[in-house]
Nucleic acid binder design. Structure first.
Lengths: 134, 134
DNA sequence: CTGTGTGCAAACTCTTTGCATAAGT
DNA sequence: ACTTATGCAAAGAGTTTGCACACAG
């Protein structure tokens, strides 16, 4: 039976199964999060939610298609999911490979390119890569 | 014996082997390119350059460490290498998964975040994701 | 000569998929 | 009931690695 996060799922047209509700709760509760499938699976396993790794992958994809999450591609061979779905910039710490939201409003564009013929801009991803100062 | 692209390698402190020179020539000749290891390997194989896939991977990594190329992470599970190494924005066509340089100067920042304590900004990656207009 | 680069194949990581079972509406 | 999701294990894609041989300095 639907619990926390169930409305979220139903509104997006997703069937609120036990596993999806549990994962949705994990995602929503933590505030703005950036995590990989493995990380979420780890949390779910630690909390004994009875969710398999394949389901975590399927669910994250389903949530993303439904517009509930956003993919972030920063590191090769590792997809992060962001619980914030608006266009916003990220910090990437090259030293430890972690991701954080950059301060709200810290990035503003003076100009953006026109979309080529027949296209429109879907999103503008900005990643500020940081390294330790010398 | 070093040919096209050899200086490029030597200046970066890389030993100009036959394979590296051949790959460097492919990379330099095409102008600004965005390609994956597999694509470069395909070109090398088609041109009978006698370069193995492993060497293509090793070489691309070596070139990147030496500052001759830049990695682009846009699609999950697939690393693109860019022959332009300055900070510049990219178009990503979601429909066919191709990458292109956005027009020079088309993206300008009105503001950028301050780097957190102890860090400095290495690069700012901007990806403008495009989809077909409805 | 000496050390680094190359090539092959096997290993590895992350992700996806096929199919039988379970659960939602 | 009917449809869609889950779970497992196996497959798949892209990338990395170990080791013997080859080549540049």
């Amino acid at each position: 039976m639907p619990q926390s996060g169930a409305n979220w799922l139903v509104k997006a047209g997703l069937r609120p199964t036990r596993q999806r509700c549990a994962l949705a709760a994990l995602l929503v509760d933590g505030g703005n999060r950036h995590l990989t499938a493995e990380q979420l699976y780890g949390e779910a396993a630690r909390a004994d939610l009875g969710v398999s790794l394949a389901t975590v992958y399927n669910t994250l994809k389903a949530f993303t298609s439904a517009g509930l999450l956003r993919e972030i591609n920063i590191e090769p061979g590792r997809v992060y999911y962001d619980t914030r779905i608006d266009d916003h910039p990220h910090f990437y710490f090259e030293d430890d490979g972690t991701i954080a939201d950059a301060p709200v409003g810290s990035v503003a564009f003076a100009s953006l390119p026109e979309a080529p013929e027949g296209c429109e801009i879907a999103t503008v991803d900005v990643v500020v890569r940081l390294r330790k100062r010398v």
